[in-house]
Simulated assay, not measured.
Amino acid sequence: MSENQSTTSETTDKKELLEEEEEDGRSNKGVSEYYQKQNEMLENFKNDSEQIEAFNRMKSRKNEENSVKTQDSLINRHQDNLKEEEKLNKAAKRLANITLGVNFTLMIAKIMASVLSGSMSIISSMVDSVVDLTSGLILSISNRMIRKRDPYLYPRGRTRLEPLALILISVIMGMASVQLIISSANRISDKLNNIADPLDVTYITVGIMLTTVCTKFLLFMICQKYKSNPSIKVLAMDHRNDCISNLMTLGCAWMGKNYWYYMDPIGAILVSFYILYTWIRTGRTHALMLSGKSAAPEFINRIIKVGIDHDKRITHIDTVYVYHFGLKFLVEMHIVLDQKMPLKEAHDIAESLQTNIESLPEVERAFVHTDYDFTHHPHDEHKNV
Protein backbone atom coordinates (compact mmCIF):
# COMPACT_ATOMS: atom_id res chain seq x y z
CA MET A 1 0.00 0.00 0.00
CA SER A 2 2.80 2.40 0.92
CA GLU A 3 4.59 1.53 -2.34
CA ASN A 4 1.46 2.41 -4.34
CA GLN A 5 1.14 5.68 -2.46
CA SER A 6 4.77 6.58 -3.10
CA THR A 7 4.38 5.73 -6.82
CA THR A 8 1.26 7.88 -7.03
CA SER A 9 2.99 10.79 -5.30
CA GLU A 10 5.99 10.51 -7.65
CA THR A 11 3.66 10.55 -10.68
CA THR A 12 1.88 13.61 -9.28
CA ASP A 13 5.19 15.36 -8.67
CA LYS A 14 6.30 14.61 -12.24
CA LYS A 15 3.02 15.98 -13.63
CA GLU A 16 3.35 19.13 -11.55
CA LEU A 17 6.96 19.52 -12.67
CA LEU A 18 5.97 19.12 -16.33
CA GLU A 19 3.14 21.64 -15.92
CA GLU A 20 5.54 24.12 -14.33
CA GLU A 21 8.02 23.63 -17.18
CA GLU A 22 5.25 24.19 -19.73
CA GLU A 23 4.14 27.35 -17.92
CA ASP A 24 7.77 28.56 -17.81
CA GLY A 25 8.08 27.81 -21.52
CA ARG A 26 4.94 29.77 -22.32
CA SER A 27 6.10 32.59 -20.08
CA ASN A 28 9.53 32.71 -21.70
CA LYS A 29 7.92 32.64 -25.14
CA GLY A 30 5.66 35.54 -24.15
CA VAL A 31 8.62 37.53 -22.82
CA SER A 32 10.59 36.79 -25.98
CA GLU A 33 7.71 37.95 -28.21
CA TYR A 34 7.33 41.09 -26.08
CA TYR A 35 10.97 42.07 -26.43
CA GLN A 36 10.90 41.23 -30.12
CA LYS A 37 8.01 43.65 -30.60
CA GLN A 38 9.86 46.28 -28.56
CA ASN A 39 12.96 45.88 -30.72
CA GLU A 40 10.87 46.16 -33.87
CA MET A 41 9.26 49.32 -32.51
CA LEU A 42 12.65 50.86 -31.69
CA GLU A 43 13.90 49.96 -35.16
CA ASN A 44 10.83 51.62 -36.68
CA PHE A 45 11.42 54.74 -34.57
CA LYS A 46 14.99 54.89 -35.81
CA ASN A 47 14.00 54.38 -39.45
CA ASP A 48 11.31 57.07 -39.20
CA SER A 49 13.80 59.57 -37.75
CA GLU A 50 16.28 58.84 -40.52
CA GLN A 51 13.57 59.09 -43.15
CA ILE A 52 12.42 62.49 -41.87
CA GLU A 53 15.95 63.80 -41.50
CA ALA A 54 16.86 62.67 -45.00
CA PHE A 55 13.74 64.31 -46.38
CA ASN A 56 14.54 67.61 -44.68
CA ARG A 57 18.19 67.51 -45.78
CA MET A 58 17.16 66.89 -49.35
CA LYS A 59 14.85 69.92 -49.27
CA SER A 60 17.61 72.24 -48.06
CA ARG A 61 20.44 70.67 -50.03
CA LYS A 62 20.51 73.51 -52.57
CA ASN A 63 21.43 75.94 -49.80
CA GLU A 64 24.11 73.71 -48.32
CA GLU A 65 27.37 73.48 -50.19
CA ASN A 66 29.45 71.68 -47.58
CA SER A 67 27.52 68.64 -46.48
CA VAL A 68 28.75 66.23 -43.87
CA LYS A 69 29.18 62.62 -45.04
CA THR A 70 26.51 61.38 -42.68
CA GLN A 71 24.08 63.90 -44.09
CA ASP A 72 24.92 62.80 -47.62
CA SER A 73 24.31 59.19 -46.69
CA LEU A 74 20.88 60.07 -45.29
CA ILE A 75 20.03 62.03 -48.43
CA ASN A 76 21.21 59.17 -50.60
CA ARG A 77 19.14 56.78 -48.53
CA HIS A 78 16.00 58.85 -49.08
CA GLN A 79 16.72 59.15 -52.78
CA ASP A 80 17.24 55.39 -52.91
CA ASN A 81 13.85 54.93 -51.26
CA LEU A 82 12.24 57.15 -53.89
CA LYS A 83 14.00 55.25 -56.67
CA GLU A 84 12.94 51.94 -55.14
CA GLU A 85 9.31 53.08 -54.96
CA GLU A 86 9.47 54.24 -58.60
CA LYS A 87 11.05 50.92 -59.56
CA LEU A 88 8.23 49.04 -57.80
CA ASN A 89 5.59 51.11 -59.58
CA LYS A 90 7.19 50.41 -62.95
CA ALA A 91 7.47 46.71 -62.10
CA ALA A 92 3.78 46.68 -61.08
CA LYS A 93 2.78 48.21 -64.41
CA ARG A 94 5.00 45.84 -66.38
CA LEU A 95 3.79 42.75 -64.51
CA ALA A 96 0.17 43.83 -64.88
CA ASN A 97 0.62 44.08 -68.65
CA ILE A 98 2.41 40.71 -68.80
CA THR A 99 -0.33 39.11 -66.69
CA LEU A 100 -2.95 40.58 -68.98
CA GLY A 101 -1.34 39.01 -72.05
CA VAL A 102 -0.71 35.67 -70.33
CA ASN A 103 -4.28 35.48 -69.00
CA PHE A 104 -5.69 36.17 -72.46
CA THR A 105 -3.58 33.37 -73.97
CA LEU A 106 -4.44 30.94 -71.17
CA MET A 107 -8.12 31.83 -71.44
CA ILE A 108 -8.14 30.83 -75.14
CA ALA A 109 -6.30 27.59 -74.29
CA LYS A 110 -8.70 26.77 -71.45
CA ILE A 111 -11.72 27.40 -73.65
CA MET A 112 -10.32 24.74 -75.99
CA ALA A 113 -9.69 22.39 -73.05
CA SER A 114 -13.24 22.95 -71.73
CA VAL A 115 -14.81 22.21 -75.11
CA LEU A 116 -12.67 19.09 -75.60
CA SER A 117 -13.19 17.64 -72.13
CA GLY A 118 -16.67 18.78 -71.02
CA SER A 119 -15.26 18.84 -67.47
CA MET A 120 -16.92 21.15 -64.93
CA SER A 121 -13.62 21.44 -63.07
CA ILE A 122 -11.83 22.69 -66.17
CA ILE A 123 -14.78 24.96 -67.02
CA SER A 124 -14.43 26.49 -63.53
CA SER A 125 -10.75 27.11 -64.26
CA MET A 126 -11.68 28.69 -67.60
CA VAL A 127 -14.19 31.03 -65.95
CA ASP A 128 -11.48 31.95 -63.43
CA SER A 129 -9.23 32.94 -66.35
CA VAL A 130 -12.00 35.05 -67.88
CA VAL A 131 -12.46 36.88 -64.58
CA ASP A 132 -8.67 37.25 -64.25
CA LEU A 133 -8.61 38.95 -67.63
CA THR A 134 -11.45 41.24 -66.57
CA SER A 135 -9.72 42.07 -63.27
CA GLY A 136 -6.46 42.82 -65.09
CA LEU A 137 -8.26 45.26 -67.37
CA ILE A 138 -9.96 46.93 -64.40
CA LEU A 139 -6.67 47.32 -62.50
CA SER A 140 -4.94 48.66 -65.61
CA ILE A 141 -7.68 51.25 -66.17
CA SER A 142 -7.69 52.28 -62.49
CA ASN A 143 -3.88 52.72 -62.42
CA ARG A 144 -4.06 54.86 -65.56
CA MET A 145 -6.77 57.01 -63.99
CA ILE A 146 -4.73 57.40 -60.78
CA ARG A 147 -1.71 58.66 -62.74
CA LYS A 148 -3.79 61.23 -64.66
CA ARG A 149 -4.44 63.73 -61.89
CA ASP A 150 -6.91 66.58 -62.22
CA PRO A 151 -6.16 69.08 -59.40
CA TYR A 152 -9.56 70.76 -59.85
CA LEU A 153 -11.84 67.72 -59.88
CA TYR A 154 -9.69 65.58 -57.54
CA PRO A 155 -7.55 67.90 -55.36
CA ARG A 156 -6.11 64.98 -53.34
CA GLY A 157 -5.65 62.56 -56.21
CA ARG A 158 -7.52 59.36 -56.96
CA THR A 159 -5.44 56.77 -55.13
CA ARG A 160 -8.59 55.23 -53.62
CA LEU A 161 -9.55 53.96 -57.06
CA GLU A 162 -7.22 51.00 -56.56
CA PRO A 163 -9.00 49.50 -53.52
CA LEU A 164 -12.32 50.30 -55.21
CA ALA A 165 -11.18 48.31 -58.25
CA LEU A 166 -10.14 45.39 -56.04
CA ILE A 167 -13.54 45.39 -54.33
CA LEU A 168 -15.23 45.37 -57.74
CA ILE A 169 -13.04 42.44 -58.81
CA SER A 170 -13.95 40.60 -55.59
CA VAL A 171 -17.66 41.02 -56.37
CA ILE A 172 -17.17 39.72 -59.94
CA MET A 173 -15.16 36.72 -58.70
CA GLY A 174 -17.77 36.00 -56.04
CA MET A 175 -20.65 36.03 -58.53
CA ALA A 176 -18.73 33.79 -60.96
CA SER A 177 -17.88 31.34 -58.18
CA VAL A 178 -21.49 31.10 -56.99
CA GLN A 179 -22.66 30.47 -60.56
CA LEU A 180 -20.10 27.68 -60.95
CA ILE A 181 -21.21 26.06 -57.70
CA ILE A 182 -24.81 26.04 -58.96
CA SER A 183 -23.77 24.59 -62.35
CA SER A 184 -21.70 21.86 -60.70
CA ALA A 185 -24.58 20.93 -58.43
CA ASN A 186 -26.79 20.66 -61.53
CA ARG A 187 -24.18 18.37 -63.13
CA ILE A 188 -24.35 16.05 -60.09
CA SER A 189 -28.14 16.03 -60.38
CA ASP A 190 -27.92 15.18 -64.10
CA LYS A 191 -25.59 12.28 -63.37
CA LEU A 192 -27.97 10.89 -60.77
CA ASN A 193 -30.70 11.02 -63.42
CA ASN A 194 -28.35 9.44 -66.01
CA ILE A 195 -28.54 12.41 -68.38
CA ALA A 196 -25.03 13.86 -67.82
CA ASP A 197 -22.57 14.13 -70.70
CA PRO A 198 -19.45 11.89 -70.47
CA LEU A 199 -16.01 13.33 -69.75
CA ASP A 200 -13.21 13.26 -72.32
CA VAL A 201 -9.98 14.37 -70.60
CA THR A 202 -7.33 13.77 -73.27
CA TYR A 203 -3.57 14.35 -73.18
CA ILE A 204 -4.13 17.64 -74.99
CA THR A 205 -6.30 18.84 -72.11
CA VAL A 206 -3.73 17.63 -69.56
CA GLY A 207 -0.94 19.41 -71.47
CA ILE A 208 -2.89 22.69 -71.54
CA MET A 209 -3.57 22.58 -67.80
CA LEU A 210 0.03 21.67 -66.88
CA THR A 211 1.33 24.50 -69.07
CA THR A 212 -1.04 26.85 -67.25
CA VAL A 213 0.27 25.71 -63.85
CA CYS A 214 3.93 26.15 -64.88
CA THR A 215 3.28 29.60 -66.37
CA LYS A 216 1.39 30.80 -63.31
CA PHE A 217 4.07 29.48 -60.95
CA LEU A 218 6.76 31.33 -62.91
CA LEU A 219 4.77 34.57 -62.68
CA PHE A 220 4.23 33.98 -58.95
CA MET A 221 8.00 33.65 -58.37
CA ILE A 222 8.63 36.88 -60.30
CA CYS A 223 5.98 38.74 -58.29
CA GLN A 224 7.54 37.56 -55.01
CA LYS A 225 10.56 39.78 -55.71
CA TYR A 226 8.35 42.89 -55.64
CA LYS A 227 5.71 41.84 -53.11
CA SER A 228 6.11 45.04 -51.04
CA ASN A 229 3.99 46.78 -53.69
CA PRO A 230 0.24 46.29 -52.94
CA SER A 231 -0.73 45.73 -56.58
CA ILE A 232 2.02 43.16 -57.15
CA LYS A 233 1.08 41.46 -53.89
CA VAL A 234 -2.47 40.99 -55.24
CA LEU A 235 -1.08 39.66 -58.53
CA ALA A 236 1.16 37.21 -56.63
CA MET A 237 -1.82 35.98 -54.62
CA ASP A 238 -3.81 35.53 -57.80
CA HIS A 239 -1.03 33.54 -59.49
CA ARG A 240 -0.61 31.36 -56.40
CA ASN A 241 -4.34 30.68 -56.25
CA ASP A 242 -4.34 29.79 -59.95
CA CYS A 243 -1.54 27.25 -59.45
CA ILE A 244 -3.46 25.53 -56.65
CA SER A 245 -6.86 25.66 -58.38
CA ASN A 246 -5.53 24.48 -61.77
CA LEU A 247 -3.71 21.51 -60.22
CA MET A 248 -6.83 20.60 -58.29
CA THR A 249 -9.12 20.95 -61.32
CA LEU A 250 -6.83 18.79 -63.44
CA GLY A 251 -6.67 16.09 -60.76
CA CYS A 252 -10.43 16.09 -60.23
CA ALA A 253 -11.14 16.01 -63.98
CA TRP A 254 -8.73 13.10 -64.47
CA MET A 255 -10.21 11.12 -61.58
CA GLY A 256 -13.73 11.93 -62.75
CA LYS A 257 -12.98 10.39 -66.15
CA ASN A 258 -11.08 7.31 -64.98
CA TYR A 259 -12.45 6.47 -61.51
CA TRP A 260 -15.48 8.27 -60.12
CA TYR A 261 -17.54 10.70 -62.23
CA TYR A 262 -18.66 12.79 -59.28
CA MET A 263 -15.08 13.86 -58.51
CA ASP A 264 -15.25 16.30 -61.42
CA PRO A 265 -18.25 18.42 -60.26
CA ILE A 266 -17.17 18.06 -56.62
CA GLY A 267 -13.73 19.39 -57.57
CA ALA A 268 -15.35 22.31 -59.38
CA ILE A 269 -17.40 23.11 -56.26
CA LEU A 270 -14.32 22.96 -54.01
CA VAL A 271 -12.29 25.19 -56.33
CA SER A 272 -15.16 27.66 -56.59
CA PHE A 273 -15.51 27.82 -52.79
CA TYR A 274 -11.76 28.40 -52.46
CA ILE A 275 -11.81 31.24 -55.02
CA LEU A 276 -14.92 32.70 -53.36
CA TYR A 277 -13.26 32.65 -49.92
CA THR A 278 -9.99 34.27 -51.03
CA TRP A 279 -11.68 37.08 -52.94
CA ILE A 280 -14.26 37.76 -50.22
CA ARG A 281 -11.37 38.15 -47.80
CA THR A 282 -9.56 40.48 -50.23
CA GLY A 283 -12.71 42.55 -50.79
CA ARG A 284 -13.37 42.79 -47.06
CA THR A 285 -9.81 43.98 -46.37
CA HIS A 286 -10.01 46.77 -48.94
CA ALA A 287 -13.56 47.70 -47.92
CA LEU A 288 -12.27 48.27 -44.38
CA MET A 289 -9.53 50.49 -45.79
CA LEU A 290 -12.03 52.60 -47.71
CA SER A 291 -14.29 52.86 -44.67
CA GLY A 292 -11.50 54.59 -42.73
CA LYS A 293 -10.33 51.81 -40.43
CA SER A 294 -7.83 52.89 -37.79
CA ALA A 295 -4.15 52.01 -38.15
CA ALA A 296 -2.51 49.42 -35.92
CA PRO A 297 -1.46 50.74 -32.47
CA GLU A 298 2.21 50.23 -33.35
CA PHE A 299 1.99 52.62 -36.29
CA ILE A 300 0.00 55.19 -34.26
CA ASN A 301 2.81 55.08 -31.68
CA ARG A 302 5.30 55.83 -34.44
CA ILE A 303 3.30 58.91 -35.47
CA ILE A 304 3.07 60.08 -31.86
CA LYS A 305 6.84 59.64 -31.49
CA VAL A 306 7.38 61.89 -34.53
CA GLY A 307 5.23 64.57 -32.86
CA ILE A 308 6.98 64.28 -29.50
CA ASP A 309 10.46 64.55 -31.01
CA HIS A 310 9.59 67.33 -33.45
CA ASP A 311 9.97 70.51 -31.38
CA LYS A 312 10.50 71.28 -27.69
CA ARG A 313 7.97 74.10 -27.89
CA ILE A 314 5.18 71.53 -28.34
CA THR A 315 3.92 71.13 -24.77
CA HIS A 316 1.35 68.38 -25.37
CA ILE A 317 0.15 66.02 -28.07
CA ASP A 318 -3.60 66.45 -27.67
CA THR A 319 -5.30 64.13 -30.18
CA VAL A 320 -3.94 61.79 -32.84
CA TYR A 321 -6.05 60.03 -35.45
CA VAL A 322 -4.42 57.68 -37.94
CA TYR A 323 -6.79 55.88 -40.28
CA HIS A 324 -6.86 54.41 -43.77
CA PHE A 325 -7.26 56.75 -46.71
CA GLY A 326 -7.28 54.05 -49.35
CA LEU A 327 -4.17 51.88 -49.23
CA LYS A 328 -2.24 54.46 -47.19
CA PHE A 329 -3.07 56.48 -44.07
CA LEU A 330 -4.43 59.89 -43.29
CA VAL A 331 -3.09 61.49 -40.09
CA GLU A 332 -4.75 64.14 -37.93
CA MET A 333 -2.64 65.47 -35.07
CA HIS A 334 -3.58 68.18 -32.58
CA ILE A 335 -0.61 69.81 -30.84
CA VAL A 336 -0.61 72.27 -27.94
CA LEU A 337 1.57 75.40 -28.06
CA ASP A 338 1.96 78.47 -25.86
CA GLN A 339 -1.05 80.72 -26.39
CA LYS A 340 1.25 83.78 -26.50
CA MET A 341 3.33 82.33 -29.36
CA PRO A 342 3.28 84.44 -32.57
CA LEU A 343 1.19 83.08 -35.41
CA LYS A 344 4.19 82.82 -37.75
CA GLU A 345 6.12 80.70 -35.26
CA ALA A 346 3.14 78.41 -34.54
CA HIS A 347 2.46 78.01 -38.26
CA ASP A 348 6.07 77.04 -39.02
CA ILE A 349 6.08 74.40 -36.27
CA ALA A 350 2.81 72.87 -37.47
CA GLU A 351 3.75 72.97 -41.15
CA SER A 352 7.16 71.37 -40.65
CA LEU A 353 5.58 68.65 -38.49
CA GLN A 354 3.01 68.00 -41.19
CA THR A 355 5.78 67.73 -43.80
CA ASN A 356 7.74 65.31 -41.61
CA ILE A 357 4.75 63.04 -41.10
CA GLU A 358 3.97 63.05 -44.82
CA SER A 359 7.56 62.02 -45.59
CA LEU A 360 6.80 58.58 -44.13
CA PRO A 361 5.99 56.19 -47.00
CA GLU A 362 2.86 54.81 -45.30
CA VAL A 363 1.22 58.25 -45.01
CA GLU A 364 -0.91 59.68 -47.82
CA ARG A 365 -1.81 62.99 -46.16
CA ALA A 366 -1.31 64.68 -42.76
CA PHE A 367 -3.09 67.59 -41.07
CA VAL A 368 -1.71 69.30 -37.97
CA HIS A 369 -4.00 71.45 -35.83
CA THR A 370 -2.54 73.88 -33.27
CA ASP A 371 -4.24 74.62 -29.97
CA TYR A 372 -3.44 76.26 -26.64
CA ASP A 373 -5.62 74.01 -24.48
CA PHE A 374 -5.76 70.23 -24.00
CA THR A 375 -8.49 69.86 -21.37
CA HIS A 376 -11.42 69.87 -23.82
CA HIS A 377 -12.96 66.77 -25.38
CA PRO A 378 -11.82 65.96 -28.94
CA HIS A 379 -15.46 65.77 -30.09
CA ASP A 380 -15.90 69.44 -29.22
CA GLU A 381 -13.89 70.43 -32.32
CA HIS A 382 -15.81 68.34 -34.88
CA LYS A 383 -19.35 67.17 -35.40
CA ASN A 384 -20.15 63.57 -34.55
CA VAL A 385 -20.41 61.32 -37.61
Rank of each mutant, 00 (worst) to 15 (best):
E3Y: 11
S27R: 15
N39Q: 13
L42M: 04
N44D: 10
S49T: 08
Q51D: 10
S60G: 14
R61P: 04
R61G: 07
V68N: 02
V68M: 02
K69S: 14
S73Y: 09
N76L: 11
R77C: 02
L88C: 08
L88Y: 13
R94F: 13
I98W: 04
V102Y: 07
N103D: 14
S114M: 03
S121T: 08
S121V: 09
D132Q: 14
S135G: 08
R147E: 15
K148P: 00
R149F: 00
L164R: 06
V171W: 06
M173F: 07
V178S: 05
S184Y: 01
A185K: 04
I188W: 03
A196V: 05
T211S: 13
V213W: 01
T215C: 10
F220A: 01
K225I: 11
P230G: 01
S231V: 12
S231P: 01
H239W: 01
L247F: 06
L250V: 07
G251K: 02
C252M: 13
K257H: 14
Y261C: 02
Y262C: 08
D264L: 05
I266F: 06
Y277K: 10
W279G: 00
W279H: 12
I280M: 07
I280E: 02
G283S: 01
H286M: 02
A287P: 04
N301Y: 06
V306P: 04
D311K: 01
I314T: 05
H316G: 01
I317C: 03
F325K: 09
M341T: 08
Q354V: 00
T355Q: 15
E362R: 12
A366P: 08
D371K: 09
H377A: 15
P378W: 09
K383Q: 07
